[in-house]
Amino acid sequence: MSLLSVENLQIRFRTGDGLVHAVNDVSFDIAEGQKLALVGESGSGKSQIALAIMGLLAKNAEVAGKVRFDGRDLLSLPASQLNALRAAQIALIFQDPMSSLNPYMTIERQLGEVVELHEGASRAEARKRALEVMEAVRIPDARNRLRAYPHEFSGGMRQRIVIAMALICRPRLILADEPTTALDVTVQAQIMALLDEIQRDLGTAVLLITHDLGVVAGFCDDTMVLYGGRVMEAAPTPAIFDAPGHPYTRGLLRAVPRITDGDVTLSAIPGSPPNQTAAPRACPFAPRCVDAIPACHEMLPDFREGRACIRPVEELT
């Protein structure tokens, strides 16, 4: 049985301009220890999926579908039980380490309160655990820095702390929402290596959210590509890279920076993300798709055999 199973997840936001269909009909499974990547451009709904799993969507959100974790439906779980799962079983790593730590609390307290809450640890125990986990994420001189505040750390170090915070109760699932986006390239690599190592040691399942296919390549077993809140393609990572079956995935792959002759070339997909205020009746990617045919503008492609495209793979450019 899979650890997390998301079925027909739908997230809409009530706004002044009407309903925003942020996530439509998204389904996937994550098994114990599995690493799944969720890839898509900015605004494609990646973060909202993670927030929906955690039950942390904004107040103006409407959710439908099923999110089962370990057999329990998270969407209908009462707040207290959901709180018991958060951080203890499912942990969330946020995008921006600069703002996701509380600037007014010491690192020790911010790490320690998690163990105190979920395991009833004493202050002293919590401190010990905080130290352990800080050493695990390789914060230099961790013992002396327990009492430090977030602003005393660099961005990379702060992200390590955020990761430490996610690890401290040894959750079974980590949702990592763009854990490296806000960091320098070299630091990005270090953080990904750290995540990889920890994941191996603990056997935690990971949902890695990113808009950077380069990050996915070395890390995830499977990849799911999202566009306009819809799954475009889902396949084992090697297949995505070697034989992408969807025009959007192909576009994304072309957008991965490649170093040729010392020059970094980057080809973004022309056009802009779809307007999501109306439920789409056509392929959402059609306006930007190089392979689009008239039929694409008239019907919504079903998600079948790992892809949502009406044209067979062979016909794609």
């Binding site: 951080a87 203890a88 942990a91 915070m165």
Partner: peptide, 8 residues
């Protein structure tokens, strides 16, 4: 949001 994600 981080604090909420901790289950507090």
């Amino acid at each position: 949001l981080t604090a909420r994600a901790k289950g507090l």
